[in-house]
Computed example of a mutant assay.
Amino acid sequence: MFAEERHRLVTEQLSLQGKVGVADLSERFGITRETVRRDLAQLEQVGVLRRVHGGAVVAAKASTAEQSHTARTTQNLAAKRRIAAKALELLPQGATSILLDAGTTTELLAGLLAEELAVPRAEELLVITHALPIAQRVSPALPLELIGGRVRGLTSAATGSHTLAQLDSLRPDIAFVGANGVDADFGLSTPDALEAAVKTAIVGCARRVVVLADSSKLGETALVRFAALADIDTLVTDREPDAELAAALEAADVEVVLA
């Protein structure tokens, strides 16, 4: 088989599965692992993939890769809606302070809060957020406390020392947090250090931490870890985690809720 044909098949597998393994490709094509590594190096040079230990992932899954807010709102939308609806069921009864992290799934949850709970529970709920899209969803239907700071254009969320100082002074009842990666070993991660610092502060200040992550995030890692699995209480997702992640979540005493 010519190299061009191997490259085409590798690209197809990446588009379907998001990753390839050196050992698997070596067996599939009947070539040495060194030849596979050369193929992957050539594909990396043209931006098709990013090499990782034992294989490669699509370039979009590089540790610092991050899509715009507009692009993310259309991805895995059905799963995110189910996750948001399930997250709504986790709210405690009575007066509750709710801290919402930036993210497209938390934004959907904000919409549900405003649409379904505004009338019966408006006086009992306080929503706190540093994300402008979430603030727009919530206000004026529910009481809102907006945390300030330098707004990052890609996510429209406040970051920096001013944001962290405000979070440090809070103790909300429940926080809903997004993540770009949920990994058995690395924990919870995101591509940007400033966003990671805010997420760490949110996890650290809340009485209960619920992570909202669709199944495309499971088993993935981004550049910056912001929390260990043991730092969170609940993971809401749309698919059972694989055996390795499921065991790690159980060991960390994390409740897994399927939407």
Rank of each mutant, 00 (worst) to 15 (best):
T11G: 13
T11I: 09
E12Y: 07
Q13S: 14
D24Y: 08
E27A: 10
T32S: 15
V36L: 04
E44I: 06
G47K: 08
G47R: 04
L49M: 02
V52Q: 06
V52P: 06
K61N: 12
S63I: 12
T70G: 05
R81D: 02
A84I: 02
L88N: 04
E89A: 14
P92G: 06
Q93N: 11
D101P: 01
D101F: 01
T105R: 09
E107Y: 09
L108V: 10
A110V: 00
G111I: 03
G111S: 09
E116H: 15
V119D: 13
L126K: 06
H130C: 03
A131Q: 06
P133H: 08
I134M: 01
L142N: 07
P143L: 03
E145C: 03
L146F: 01
V151I: 14
T155D: 08
T159A: 07
S161M: 11
L164T: 11
A165K: 15
V177I: 15
G178F: 07
T190I: 15
P191T: 05
A201I: 10
G204S: 09
K217R: 13
A230R: 15
I232Q: 04
I232K: 04
L235N: 11
A243Y: 13
E244T: 14
A247I: 04
A248D: 07
D253A: 13
V254G: 12
V254R: 12
A259C: 06
